[in-house]
Write a protein that binds this DNA or RNA. Structure first.
Lengths: 148, 148
DNA sequence: TGAAACAGGACTGATATAGTACTATTTAAC
DNA sequence: GTTAAATAGTACTATATCAGTCCTGTTTCA
């Protein structure tokens, strides 16, 4: 169903929560409680988010996590990439040898193009926007025509 | 990584192949050979595609499958939906009770909005386009700003 | 009547995801 | 210095999904 994983969904929740207390250092425990998630799960996410430098960690007593950038500067795409890796729709012809028309298989380049469009869409949605209610449907993200 | 399943990838291959012989009835066996896929796999896909009325099936000797609509009228979104079900990014608050801020949880509506945008993007890409090489990157699918 | 082909469902194995646990390291406070 | 709080890293397990296969039944043409 073309969906992101539960963990990524959680990660957005955690990031939104964290970025609403920007500058403040918050422990994984506190975040878990605020988000209604399990501590081990939240810890796992925060480790990944730290590696991608979306959050900064502080060890020791009174340690925790903090976002540095304002939430309007952090895109959903960044969070997805931190948890799931690069956004791509298919491995398509990665494991080829299958497709007999390999040479004139145009699917691959088209999939890449679609992936790019989706990635761009995600890049334009910030955590600040995720924290607010979505505007009316008529204001939805719009996709320009695919045709050149 | 936000990807469609292998089966959906295969389904696009099969549909592109089928729609290049529009009007002609082609057996699952023949399609499997042309696409370099296993017969059982292709059969499975064709059954799903038939249920979604993307293709028409004919039983008995000399039976097979056929697309009725021209490839320019069939979108990638339709094929994805036939195999994977509706396009949606998250179940988000489907299994809630987790999120303590349920009432003012704005994530859900935003995810729906993003899903809608992605679905629209897929709706604009036709099988005819998938069969051709992708235009230059500068002509990529573009997503208009998320902001109202 | 027999063979070709699809329909439907069930089953199995592989892979990915989700969740958990354990050990090590860091840091502040007393 | 010792202790407790907290993150870092890694490994493990269970579950769910996905991919692939197979079997039985039905339809249709020759």
């Amino acid at each position: 169903m073309l969906r992101i994983s539960k963990l990524t969904d959680y990660a957005i929740m955690v990031m939104v929560e964290l970025s609403q207390s920007r500058g403040e250092v918050i422990s994984a425990q506190a975040l878990a409680e605020r988000c209604g998630l399990e501590l081990p799960t939240v810890s796992k996410l925060l480790k990944l988010l730290t590696r991608s430098e979306l959050v900064q960690s502080f060890r020791g007593v009174n340690g925790g996590y903090r976002v540095n950038r304002p939430s309007a500067d952090i895109s959903v795409a960044e969070v997805i990439a931190a948890i799931e890796g690069p956004i791509a729709m298919t491995e398509c012809s990665v494991d080829t040898g299958l497709c007999q028309q390999e040479d004139n298989c145009n699917l691959r380049s088209n999939w890449q193009r679609i992936s790019l469009a989706v990635a761009e869409a995600m890049q334009q949605v910030t955590l600040a926007e995720m924290a607010r209610p979505a505007p009316a449907v008529t204001d939805s993200l719009k996709i320009a025509t695919f045709n050149a």
